[in-house]
């Protein structure tokens, strides 16, 4: 019962975003993917969801070759591997309830969905998911009227309504304040523990990755650079992973290593 990624490679025109990445994730683990901006973290998660396909390599889930799926089976896989995005990717002008019901789309015909004829079961699942992230009071509000943290919780409810076996969270807290960061990370952890959903989460804060994840995968320039527990991720590994000068890392080391990648590269995503 595992997710298996084998020599995954993704090339854009001139850039190699992923370069032969391989790893195995046992079901039920919470894995943090770290590395500086542009290291291939987003590309990796998007390739696993099959939102954008890898150039070569295979993805296997519980023995099933996911990278070969097409049509209806592919859409079914996407719904099993729920994505959570940095910018939430909600339909801003639709209300919160409808946004969560979109998580049922893979199981409902477009016509029924467009006429708002979701079944009572679908509505029950969506409502319970909203209640679980403490957002049911906002069900009738437009998604775009909510704060970032609230929108991300709605996005998590949508993911949960997909009844996913895997959650792929791409920088889910990068645009949130510390309090909402905690709420969102706690919720992801809770889904992992209570429902046994495997979670892969891209983070650029090393502290968060250490605090929440059983295991960390470090990417550097599209290659696997580190794979181990938080304890094994020493300051010197962090320094190498982020390509920091030693004095830079020295200034930031100590109990709270705020290993921010070089700030001017942030926009380059």
């Amino acid at each position: 019962m595992t997710l298996e990624v084998q020599s995954l490679t993704k090339r854009f025109e001139s850039v190699t975003a992923l370069d032969g990445v391989s790893f195995t994730v046992p079901t039920g683990s919470l894995i943090g993917v770290i590395g500086r901006s542009g290291a291939g973290k987003s590309t990796l998660l998007r390739a696993i969801n099959r939102l954008s396909d890898a150039t070569s390599g295979t993805i296997t889930f519980n023995g099933e070759n996911v990278s070969a799926l097409k049509g209806r089976e592919l859409r079914r896989w996407r719904s099993r591997a729920a994505m959570i995005f940095q910018q939430f990717n909600l339909a801003g002008r639709l209300d919160v309830m409808t946004n969560v019901l979109l998580g049922r789309l893979a199981r409902v015909s477009t016509l029924r969905a467009a006429l708002n004829l979701f079944s009572e079961e679908d509505r029950a699942i969506a409502t319970a998911a909203l209640d679980l992230v403490d957002m049911a009071d906002y069900a009738a509000q437009r998604a775009e009227s909510l704060s970032g943290g609230q929108q991300q919780r709605v996005a998590i409810a949508r993911a949960l309504a997909q009844e996913p076996e895997l959650i792929l969270a791409d920088e889910p807290v990068a645009s949130l304040d510390p309090r909402n960061t905690r709420i969102v990370m706690d919720t992801l952890q809770r889904l992992n523990r209570e429902f046994g959903i495997t979670v892969l989460v891209n983070l650029h804060s090393i502290d968060l990755a250490r605090a929440y994840c059983d295991r960390l995968i470090g990417l550097q320039a599209g290659r696997m650079f580190f794979d181990g527990t938080a304890a094994e991720l020493t300051d010197s590994v962090v320094r190498d992973l982020y390509g920091m000068e030693s004095d830079e890392a020295g200034a930031e080391s100590g109990p709270t290593v705020a290993a921010e990648p070089l700030p001017q590269l942030e926009m380059a995503k």
Partner: peptide
């Protein structure tokens, strides 16, 4: 399962 937990909660 997620479905039964959510339906129960609902």
């Amino acid at each position: 399962g997620i479905r039964s937990v959510l339906l129960d909660r609902a």
